[in-house]
Amino acid sequence: MNYSGILTQLIVGLSRTMILFIVSSGMSLILGVLRIPNVAHGSFYMIGAFLSYTIASFLGDVSYSFWFGIALAPIIVGLLGFFLERVFFSYLYEREHLMLLLLTFGLASVLGDLVKLIWGAEYRSMTTPVFLQGSSEFFGLPVPNYNLFLLFIGPAIAILLWFIFNKTKFGKIARAAAADKEMVSAVGVNVNLIFSLTFVLGCILAGLGGALVAPIVNISLGMDHSLIMEVFLIVIIGGLGNIWGAFLGSLIFGITQSFGILIWPQFGIIFPYLAVVIVLLIRPRGLLSSTW
């Protein structure tokens, strides 16, 4: 492969990293505020992808079907998250923390099979929307339009999240609640509502990631599992509950992974793990330590 081929490969890899970032930022939020490493997060992502496929194929080959998928799938996933949070999680906040973690394991297992029940075990694939097909020149390199679109949307989400958590009242309260739950509820804030909203926001991000990834991968069972491992790593590298940490972590993960697969196709997946180990040796609490 020539030099520009490698660069193109890298940019494509980087654009997929943006999807990882969007999903990881959702995980990071839930982790930062609720202190749950939500194993079911991968399931929400997978459901987002399947939903977006279903919505697109329901609407048929029209130009707006993709946008409908991108808008609706995360919302439905968010509603599902809301339902689960109210029915299950909210009863466990006062209990031993381990129970909450195990619950997310259980939910991941149930949701995975529900997807199998609803969509079946076959691969699904959907096409990229017409206006995002083809490729453009990007610094002199041919890059598929859809990947350029992803490169744009990742930072946009990052800025949006930064805005929500630094400039809005909800965000400030959520950060305070993450630091000291008792204190915040003592001043009369409904902490449960904050928890619930944060959880839903996290789920929406997972669903959005799924909807965005749908056109460029085979939508299949098991995508929940491989993703959750990656997201855990990213959140650990980046520092917990930190949006920019998730961004940085995703970049490190994406770059080491794309290079790794380029160098050693069979076992390239080892490289991101090596990166994690190195980061942890230098900074046990992650690159950007949790600010909240």
């Binding site: 299950f88 009863y91 466990l92 129970m99 195990l102 619950l103 394991f105 259980g106 939910l107 991941a108 297992s109 149930v110 995975g112 099979d113 529900l114 029940l117």
Partner: peptide
């Protein structure tokens, strides 16, 4: 796996 998940949820609660 779904049965397992349901058992787990049942036990937790």
């Amino acid at each position: 796996p779904m049965i397992l998940g349901l058992i787990l949820i049942f036990v937790i609660f």
